[in-house]
Design a protein around this nucleic acid. Structure first.
Length: 257
DNA sequence: TGGAATGTTCGGCT
DNA sequence: AAGCCGAACATTCC
């Protein structure tokens, strides 16, 4: 569910509330939610909350928590615990952050560095680095953009939206992209992600902000979830296919192979 | 009822 | 070796 814009929105909401606070306890209500060992955290101070790709990092005075929301995870500020509450981070005082996650694809781990092995952040990478990394890669462009070791932050929605804006077919072989197309893709990724953050993310099924608000970017989707509806650029019905084992939306006329 | 859903990871194959 | 595929994880909603 949450991709870079959703995670960024969550981080922006939580950072001012959590920074400087002390932890009263972190309790797991589902075994699966705890990934790896987590020491006793009572008394630790939260130094910062930041985004790392799709991860939410909570920097402590010693160590850090890395929260991944998987498909259906939510972080809720002072919410009421429910059947899908998998963890509760209590602060001294009465504030708490709930980790709700019906499907339990998400989880929380403790460590001293951000998760290893991920590529540059989709919003921080420079154009030249993006082009360099693309060079020599094989396979289909959509699979590459979804690969977090190549670039961190993009998921299914924003990959489709970026490819549409760059007029690139999701099945296009990376090696056959012209430099011009590759630059258009870089631009499209930046634009889509920035616009989505400004809109507070996309609420298509589960995503809400820590305060329970929905994002608005789903109303600006040009292809994602629009199968059969006319392309906003040319009127051709948007098509749904499967690429990299994910439902993929594109315009068969604007995005030629 | 089967299929699909915003994600990651692992094992096996080419 | 890189990339691809299917499966697994767990649950809800058509």
């Amino acid at each position: 569910m949450p991709e870079l814009p959703e995670v960024e929105t969550i981080v922006r909401a939580l950072a001012p509330r959590l920074t400087g606070q002390r932890i009263a306890g972190l309790r797991f209500l589902a075994r699966r939610a705890r990934r790896g060992r987590v020491p006793e955290l009572r008394g630790r101070q939260i130094r910062a909350v930041r985004r790392y790709g799709k991860y939410i990092l909570i920097d402590l005075d010693r160590g850090m928590l890395a929260v991944h929301l998987g498909m259906t995870g939510r972080l809720l500020w002072n919410g009421r615990p429910g059947p899908y509450t998998r963890a509760v981070l209590r602060l001294t005082g009465q504030d708490a952050v709930l980790f709700d996650d019906p499907r339990q694809f998400g989880g929380i781990r403790y460590g001293f560095a951000p998760p290893a092995g991920l590529g540059p952040d989709a919003l921080e990478i420079s154009e030249s680095e993006f082009l360099d990394r693309l060079l020599g890669r094989k396979g289909r462009i959509k699979a590459l953009l979804l690969n977090q070791r190549f670039l961190r932050g993009l998921g299914n929605i924003y990959t489709d939206e970026s490819l549409f804006r760059a007029r690139i077919h999701p099945r296009a072989p990376v090696g056959r992209l012209s430099r011009e197309r590759a630059r258009a893709l870089y631009r499209a990724i930046r634009d889509v992600l920035s616009e989505a953050i400004a809109a507070g993310g996309s609420s298509v099924s589960d995503y809400i902000t820590p305060e329970g608000a929905e994002g608005l970017f789903q109303f600006d989707h040009r292809v994602y979830g629009r199968a059969g509806q006319p392309c906003l650029a040319c009127g051709t019905p948007i098509r749904r296919i499967v690429v990299a084992q994910r439902g993929t939306y594109y315009c068969p006329r604007c995005q030629l192979l």
